[in-house]
């Protein structure tokens, strides 16, 4: 700690030079765009004409008259919620098994494959897998004697498919995060539990999960927040269809901006979505922290 009047630590102006690129970037690509975005939200603007100030009309329209907007918010919650509800327990269980298996590098490499793939490739690869009767998924179900699904053409199944593909994409990374936390659990706890005759399930639920709770909170919150603003896979895979069943808010706003050229309204929508995410983030951290006690 430097006292007022004491000589500065060696370095002089050096730290400011080291930080100069970040300061420039902050001005040009953080502060300026955010300010511009807020201003745009109070205008009506298709980029071919001059922006016109309309006050809070865009917010009012989206919140009170745009049923499609509310519909996409519902889809967004379903998507992000399902991602957490299905994805987190799956990754957690997998990490527990993985942490006790041998040949970790190989397993990890395999479960990591989707993480290094673009969402374009993932979307198309899965479109082929989930294709009609002769896609891989329905062929395999057929081998097991089961009737296949209309994975992407049925509105309900389309959302299920999107969630499953996203869980498939994320499970490897979450597994690695969880297994790192599991490595930190003292081994003698398991040994003591084993002496008392506790099986794998008891060890998992009574020792592993409570101790790595911070990692669980982290993955839960980041998955949910990430899911709320995510649309790359959906844009590439279903374009929000069929009949809007997978249209999430971020995708709706992207199309509003770059297809319908309603820049003002899309900016207002983005601010609303951001506000919702911010509130939920704070709430989630509070809830999950309190339950620890």
């Amino acid at each position: 700690m430097r006292r007022r009047g004491a000589p500065a630590r060696p370095g002089g102006s050096a730290p400011y030079w080291f930080l100069a690129p970040v300061f420039l970037f902050t001005g040009a690509f953080l502060v300026l765009p955010l300010g511009f975005s807020v201003w745009l939200a109070f205008t009506r603007w298709n980029p071919l004409s001059e922006p016109r100030w309309v006050g809070t009309r865009q917010f009012e329209f989206l919140l009170t008259r745009d049923d499609a907007f509310w519909g996409t918010l519902g889809n967004t919650f379903v998507f992000a919620g399902a991602l957490v509800v299905i994805g987190v327990p799956l990754a957690l269980g997998l990490a527990f098994v993985f942490s006790r298996a041998r040949g970790k590098a190989a397993w990890r490499a395999i479960y990591y494959l989707p993480q290094i793939t673009s969402f374009v490739a993932i979307a198309y690869i899965w479109q082929f897998v989930l294709d009609d009767r002769y896609g891989l998924a329905n062929r395999l179900l057929g081998l097991a004697g089961l009737r296949g699904f209309d994975w992407l053409s049925d509105p309900t199944m389309a959302m299920v498919s999107i969630v499953l593909v996203m869980v498939w994409y994320d499970v490897g990374r979450n597994m690695v995060v969880f297994s790192a936390a599991i490595e930190g659990v003292p081994k003698d706890l398991y040994e003591a539990a084993e002496l008392d005759g506790a099986g794998a399930w008891l060890q998992f639920s009574r020792i592993t999960v409570p101790i790595i709770r911070p990692a669980v909170v982290f993955v839960t919150v980041t998955s949910f927040i990430g899911g709320m603003g995510f649309f790359a896979l959906i844009l590439a895979m279903t374009k929000g269809g069929p009949r809007g069943a997978t249209e999430v808010t971020a995708l709706y706003l992207y199309e509003m901006a770059f297809q319908d050229l309603r820049m003002g309204r899309a900016s207002a929508g983005a601010l609303i979505l951001f506000a919702i995410i911010a509130v939920l983030t704070v709430l989630q951290f509070r809830l999950l922290r309190e339950r620890r006690g």
Binding site: T26, A28, F29, L30, L32, P33, L34, F36, S37, L40, P47, I225, M228, G229, F231, A250, L253, Y254, A257, M263, A266, S267, A270, L271, L273, F274, I277, A278, T281
Partner: peptide, 17 residues
Amino acid sequence: GAQMFPFFLFVIPIFFL
């Protein structure tokens, strides 16, 4: 703090900047 701003907030304004 900056890590908390989601990508979708920036697409429109940066495009026009």
